[in-house]
Design a protein around this nucleic acid. Structure first.
Length: 507
RNA sequence: GCCGUGUUGGUCAAGGGGUUAAGACGCCUCCCUUUCACGGAGGAAUCACGGGUUCGAAUCCCGUACAUGGUACCA
């Protein structure tokens, strides 16, 4: 068997959507599992929707996810160029060849003429509004025109497109790796444009030509492409031979959590979760779309949750590293049906990954989170201890701001409501005595801190439990965090005493 | 409308002729903890519908419904 080469071909028209990253992921996993290559080609032939910077953004997202391609516009490779716009000349040749072979034709119809055709079909009550075999002989194209008429138009520089001539009464079928046999009646497929008036190919021509030229062996794409598959199959048949065609896999769609439909950027804004891998700022209108990265997701968790959306290994295992995924991924365990995206579950994956990642490995990310709170970390060893102490209560990296922040900065306001109602002179006296005893405590460790606290409480005839909540509020400012004595040990003797004092002063 | 593809708890899903129909998220109860979590033990909740085939159907077949995608000189 020849080398496995899979490819992903995003169009640089905006941010990288969940579905896009998942397609990349499945491409990547399949390639790695079989020792093949993952190729990234850019579909930048849509002049009107092309967005400056989007291509770099895509590369950045893939790098963050750890899914870097083997060949791409930035990585280079033997089949360069990898940008469709730079391969423009290759496509025309094949389009012309199709015309010469009678499988395609020139069409000179203006937008107005196309519109008129659709209006007419609609008026007739026709079941389809397509430019297809039923209408093409009534249109302005080289099929109906005399050869000299066509030549005249061409010579005169009349704008034209090249359309595929879909045959009548044939069945086009192919095997999809996850859906098995799929077939179409050619009478229901339209004469798609292959080469646009501006000389750029449409996706239909470009995928086929590029897949052939780049020797792609397997092609993964979203299910939304299934309806145009017959066009691609026909093209392969006419141009390069079905035996050379890559194997197809059409991935299920990722659906919006509520209501119906494909997950879109809007849903994220509306429901309050990201749908892009990383923040994307649209240069056209300055609009910012939130990304998983900036919200505080770990790339490993992001990849993990994406893999689980439409695939599982059948064992019930939920947490996978990229390496495990590469090893265990199998195309026939990919689902056929679309899956609704569940942000709660997505967060759970991240929490699991935070728990499983060591404090040391988390340190840089947490440092950045704290820096955003104006907290500069100088002692890495201390930071790592803090992280290990609090990470199990963090779902997102940004949670470290509240969960770890008080280890670096004393609270300036306190949850007084939690303390005041039960506060009295006895308790006040307890904490004053406590400060004194802590001040002279020989060893500042969790056991000593706790023992002193409890002994003093007993001596003052107060239940230690009743004093722990006030103590917590003094140290943290609020009612959360690890065990109070752990916190006290961590922030040190002077820190602890100062915080008790500050609170008493503010009371 | 037409064409394609789907349909197991609220969500992700295992299971592909005989199962008490796994597991996970979420939700609820309890335990742990005089904080918040983590962890542990339980609980509620499911085979879209109708016909076949079969001793037996979530599983195979046919319809229907519903969902979703496409129906552009967008990808």
């Amino acid at each position: 068997m020849s080398t496995i080469r899979v490819r992903f071909a995003p169009s640089p028209t905006g941010g990288l959507h969940l579905g896009g990253v998942r397609t990349v992921l499945f491409n990547y996993l399949f390639a790695k599992k079989h020792g093949g290559k993952f190729i990234l080609r850019i579909e930048d032939t849509d002049q009107t929707r092309y967005v400056e910077g989007a291509e770099q953004y895509i590369m950045d997202c893939l790098q963050w996810c750890g899914l870097e391609p083997d060949e791409s516009p930035v990585h280079g490779g033997p089949y360069a160029p990898y940008r469709q716009s730079e391969r423009k000349d290759m496509y025309r040749k094949y389009a012309e060849q199709l015309v010469a072979d009678g499988h395609a034709y020139y069409a000179f119809d203006t937008p107005a003429e196309l519109e008129a055709m659709r209006e007419e079909l609609k008026a007739k009550g026709s079941s389809s509004l397509q430019y297809d075999q039923t209408v093409r002989m009534g249109m302005h194209n080289s099929l109906r025109l005399l050869p000299e008429e066509t030549q005249q138009l061409l010579d005169a520089g009349t704008p034209y497109v090249i359309r595929i001539k879909v045959p009548a009464n044939e069945t086009v079928s192919f095997t999809d790796m996850i859906r098995d046999e799929i077939s179409f009646d050619t009478n229901t497929v339209d004469d798609k444009v292959l080469l646009k008036a501006d000389g750029m190919p449409t996706y239909h021509l470009a995928v086929v030509v590029d897949d052939y030229l780049m020797e792609i062996s397997h092609a993964f794409r979203g299910e939304e492409w299934l309806p145009s598959a017959p066009v691609h199959i026909l093209l392969w048949k006419y141009l390069f031979g079905l035996e050379n065609m890559p194997k197809w896999a059409h991935l299920p769609l990722i659906l919006k959590p509520d209501g119906n439909g494909k997950l879109s950027k809007r849903d994220g804004d509306r429901l309050g979760f990201p749908v892009y891998a990383m923040d994307w700022k649209d240069p056209k209108n300055g609009e910012l779309t939130k990304g998983f990265k900036e919200l505080g997701f770990l790339p490993a968790a992001f990849v993990n949750l994406l893999a689980a959306l439409g695939w599982n290994d059948g064992t019930g295992q939920e947490i996978f590293t990229l390496e495990e995924l590469c090893d265990k991924f199998s195309i026939d365990r990919v689902h056929k049906g679309g899956a609704k995206f569940d942000f709660e579950k997505a967060k759970w994956y991240n929490a699991e990954w935070i728990k499983r990642t060591s404090g040391g490995d988390l340190a840089n990310d947490v440092k950045a989170v704290l820096a955003a709170q104006q907290i500069a970390v100088t002692d890495d060893a201390y930071l790592i201890q803090v992280i290990d102490l609090v990470k199990e209560r963090c779902t997102l990296l940004n949670d470290f701001a509240t969960q770890a922040g008080f280890f670096f900065m004393a609270p300036t306001q306190w949850d007084m409501e939690a303390v005041k109602p039960k506060w009295n002179e006895d308790k006040k006296a307890f904490f004053e005595a406590l400060m004194e005893q802590y001040n002279s405590l020989p060893n500042w460790d969790v056991a000593s801190i706790e023992q002193t606290f409890k002994d003093l409480a007993t001596a003052k005839n107060i239940k230690p439990g009743e004093l722990q909540l006030p103590m917590r509020v003094m140290l943290v400012g609020d009612k959360f965090g690890p065990a109070v004595f752990e916190i006290a040990a961590m922030i040190g003797r002077t820190g602890t005493i100062q915080r008790i004092q500050a609170f008493m002063g503010a009371l």
